[in-house]
Design a protein around this nucleic acid. Structure first.
Length: 139
DNA sequence: GCCAACGTTGGC
DNA sequence: GCCAACGTTGGC
């Protein structure tokens, strides 16, 4: 199973908003970047992704699960981009901040550190396990 | 609020 | 197909 990280601006769509969608989840739309698009296309049902809040919070606040693989993004009029459906899986007992991630040498290679602007990113198994541990989850 | 970094667009 | 200009994102 592959792991990912998806970003959202909490002002626009937050972890709380995602949680309110419940077990059914909902579409993760709005990606307008070809690099991110490739990652969306690579997602499989059951894959998990860190849910990262940019801007004010700058922390991994939860984990979502992919419930539907990529399909055309209904919010994209050009019909070029895709979205997936995700549902909230579990919250981080302790949010893992960008500061904490940057302070951990083992995470220096994370895409989040190297290319913070990419809105959908792959996460390695080692990174996944470590961030889970830092957030108080067994992984 | 500023600025650096990156991606995209459009002219040639 | 290249590259400069521009717009956007996101960290600080």
């Amino acid at each position: 199973m592959a792991h990912w990280l998806v970003k959202s601006e909490p002002d626009v769509f937050s972890w709380d908003d995602q949680k309110k969608l419940g077990a059914k989840g909902g579409p993760w739309t709005g990606v307008r970047n070809y690099g991110a698009r490739l990652h969306l296309l690579a997602m499989k049902k059951g894959d998990r992704a860190f849910y990262y809040h940019s801007n004010d919070q700058r922390a991994v606040v939860g984990i979502v699960e992919v419930t539907k693989t990529a399909y055309p993004d209904p919010t994209d009029e050009s019909a070029k981009f895709v979205c997936v459906d995700v549902k909230a899986k579990e919250a981080m007992p302790t949010p893992v901040t960008l500061v904490a991630i940057k302070a951990e040498p083992k995470l220096a290679g994370m895409v989040l550190v190297k290319n913070s602007r990419l809105s959908v990113q792959p996460v390695t198994d080692a990174e996944w396990a470590l961030v889970c541990a830092m957030g108080g989850l067994k992984g």
